[in-house]
Design a binder for these strands. Structure first.
Lengths: 147, 147
DNA sequence: TATTGTTATACTCTATAACTATA
DNA sequence: TATAGTTATAGAGTATAACAATA
C-alpha cells in the first residue's frame, strides 16, 4: 500500500464533488434541485408514512423539507394524503409522473458517472462502484413501512 | 453490474459521512477542527506563497481562512512570514511542531479508516482505497511554488 | 399531555464590500 | 491603479421555538 496516498475522507470528498458536478446538468435539464432528487429517490421504494420520517431519511430538518415537498407536489411529482388512521400524518408518495422523471434522471446520471471515473479502466471502475455500494448500502437510512 | 445500486454520488456521500465521523475523535484528541487539519495537510508538501493561494487550494474563502490561521499560528503549528520580495504577501509554512502533529493525526486517521471499510475484506478495501486515490489525485488543487 | 405538520424566529455559516498597506 | 491581507457587513442556509390540529 502506498503511504503517500490521500486520506480516505479527502479522496472521497474530491470524487464526490466531481460526481455532484456531473449530476448537475442532468438535474438541471429536468428542472430539479439536488434535494428534490434526493427526496424522489427516498420515495422510490415506498411511500413515507410521515413527513418527519422522510425528513429523517434524507437527513434534512423537517422545516427545510416543506418547501421541497411543496415544489414537487405542485409539479405533480408526489402526493401528500392524510392518513385516515391518524389524521395528523401526511403520507408522501410518488406519482407516476414522479416515478417516470426519477427514472429519466437516474439513467442520465449513470451515463455521466463514467466520465468521473475516467482515470480507471472499465473493469476497475465497475469494481470501484460495486465496492462503494457494498460499503454504502448499510449506511443508508430508509423510509416506509417495510423499509 | 447490478442495476439497483446507489448512484455514485449517493454512495460517496454516505461513505464520506462515515469517514468523517471516524476522523473526528482523532482530531478531537489533538484539539484540531476539521478545517485545521485540511489546512495543515495542504501545507505538508510545501509553503504557500500567499494566503489567497492557500485559501484557493483548500477551497475556502480567504476571509474564513483567517481565524484558522490565527488559531494554528497561536499554537505554533505554522508560521506566517512577510515575503521580502513583495511585502504584501505572507508566506505560510508548517513549523516542525505542525509537521509532527499532522503526522500523528494522519496515523490515527488511517488506523480508523479500516473500520469504515469493514464490510470489505482487506484486499478489497485496499483496492478501493487505491482506485479512489487514483481518481481523486488529479482533482486536487495544490499549493506552493513547485505545487 | 404528546405528536404531526406548519409558521415564525434566531442562529450559524458563508460570501461580499469596505479599509489599510504595499506595490 | 491594482493586489494582499484584514475587518466589517450583509446574505444564504440551517436549526430552534412557537402555534394549530389531532390523538
Amino acid at each position: 500500500m502506498r503511504d503517500d496516498r490521500l486520506d480516505l475522507a479527502h479522496a472521497l470528498s474530491l470524487v464526490l464533488r466531481a460526481a455532484l458536478a456531473a449530476e448537475e446538468p442532468v438535474l438541471q435539464a429536468h428542472d430539479l434541485q439536488m434535494w428534490d432528487y434526493v427526496v424522489l429517490n427516498a420515495l422510490e421504494r415506498g411511500a413515507a408514512p410521515t413527513q418527519s420520517e422522510l425528513a429523517a431519511a434524507v437527513r434534512r430538518d423537517k422545516t427545510r423539507l416543506l418547501p421541497i415537498l411543496d415544489r414537487l407536489e405542485a409539479r405533480g411529482l408526489l402526493r401528500r394524503t392524510v392518513d385516515p388512521g391518524d389524521r395528523r400524518n401526511r403520507v408522501v408518495q410518488l406519482t407516476d409522473a414522479g416515478r417516470d422523471l426519477l427514472g429519466a434522471c437516474k439513467r442520465g446520471i449513470r451515463a455521466g458517472e463514467r466520465s468521473v471515473l475516467a482515470p480507471l479502466d472499465p473493469d476497475a471502475a465497475a469494481a470501484l462502484i460495486e465496492a462503494l455500494d457494498r460499503v454504502a448500502r448499510p449506511l443508508r437510512t430508509t423510509v416506509g413501512p417495510s423499509a
